[in-house]
Amino acid sequence: MFEIRIHSRGGQGGVTAARLIALAAFRDGKHATATPFYGAERRGAPIIAFARIDEDPIRIYSQVQNPDLVVVLDRTLVPVVKVLKGLKPHGAVLVNSGHAVTLDHQRVHHVDLTGIALAEDLVIAGEPVLDTPVLGAIARLGVISLESATKAIAEMFQDPRNVTAAERAYRELVL
C-alpha cells in the first residue's frame, strides 16, 4: 500500500488534492481512498488529508501513520507542523516552493505550484489554485500516471488551465 499525507491550510485545496489522487489512482486501475481529517474547519488553519493506493480493497480508515509521501502545499507550515512525522525511511517529500528546501538536513523535492497557478491565472477568490497543479508533480514521482492525473482533473474541473498547470508542474518538479 502506498500512503500519502498532505499538509495544507484551509482553503488551499489539500482535501481536493487527496480526492484527485484517489480518483487518478482509480483510473490507473487501482483501489484508492481519500480521507480528510477535519478539525475546526476554517480558512488558513493547518489541515491534513490522506490518500491510500493499493492493488487490493483498502480496509483502513484510521489516519496514515507512516506515509510513503508527504506533500506540503504551504511552506509556512513547516515550522508550525511536524510535516516529517512518521515518514518511512525512504519516503519522499514534496514541497510547494520556488527554491530548494532542506528539511531535517535533507533536500526534498520542490516545485513552485503557487507560481504556476499565478502564471496560468488559476486564481479563485484571490487564492492561487494548488490542488490541480500538485497532481502533475505527484505523477512525476510515479505515484499515479500523468494520463490518469489529467483525466481526474478534467473529470472534476471544467477549466482546461487546471490540466495545463498540472502538466507544467510535472515538467518543472525539481527532483
Binding site: A18, R19, A22, L23, F26, H31, A32, T33, A34, T35, P36, F37, Y38, P57, I58, Y61
Partner: peptide
C-alpha cells in the same frame, strides 16, 4: 461520520 461519510472509495 467523516470516517465513512467523507472518505472517497470505489
Amino acid at each position: 461520520g467523516f470516517l465513512l461519510s467523507h472518505t472517497m472509495q470505489d
